[in-house]
């Protein structure tokens, strides 16, 4: 049984962003989301240094989560792999990242980072408000945190995103489209 509901809306989310625009609540929701993406994503084996190496989430630039991300990541696992968080002030090719989060800030850094990992098995997550869009991009609509998925970009990087996650996305850019 596979639901093919178009653009499943997250209207019932309890993590509703209220009218007072409490920034910390929005990022608390995002901090909860990011590690939860990981169980639905399959990387090629080459993306990891070892079979049981952890999945590393790299936060580029300033930390908007206020340390909450480490907390939510620590509660989850992806198979045998633990989930760890690293903070990078600037793109660093020497650091092995499976997920890169690009927060609001310098557009050029984000674009540069996206270009740098393009075609590589790195899941790029872009924050809402950025022009540049990664494989997963957060959007805030009607006071709710949602996300779009660019399945084509993920396929280009050799990363498979589970249809279960696709089902929850606000919009999906399917594979095979430019």
């Amino acid at each position: 049984m596979r639901l093919r509901l178009p653009m499943l809306a997250l209207s019932g989310l309890i993590f509703a962003v209220n009218a007072r625009a409490d920034v910390s609540l929005e990022y608390a929701v995002k901090a909860a989301y990011i590690p939860k993406f990981i169980p639905f994503i399959t990387w090629p084996d080459a993306a990891f240094a070892a079979p049981n190496a952890p999945v590393t989430i790299c936060v580029l630039g300033a930390d908007p989560f206020g340390g909450k991300l480490e907390q939510t990541a620590g509660e989850l696992k992806s198979g045998d792999r633990a989930i760890v968080v690293r903070y990078l002030p600037a793109p660093d090719a020497s650091v092995s990242c499976q997920v890169i989060f690009m927060g609001k800030g310098d557009e050029t850094i984000a674009e540069g980072a996206l270009d740098a990992v393009k075609g590589k098995p790195v899941v790029t997550v872009t924050d809402s408000g950025l022009k540049a869009h990664g494989m997963i991009s957060f959007v805030v609509a009607a006071n709710h945190v949602r996300f779009d998925i660019d399945e084509a970009a993920a396929a280009q990087g050799g990363v498979a995103i589970s249809s279960k996650l696709l089902g929850l996305a606000r919009a999906v850019k399917p594979r095979g489209q430019p």
Partner: peptide, 8 residues
Amino acid sequence: ILFGDHSA
């Protein structure tokens, strides 16, 4: 369930 999406 994981994302707490009640309506979905």
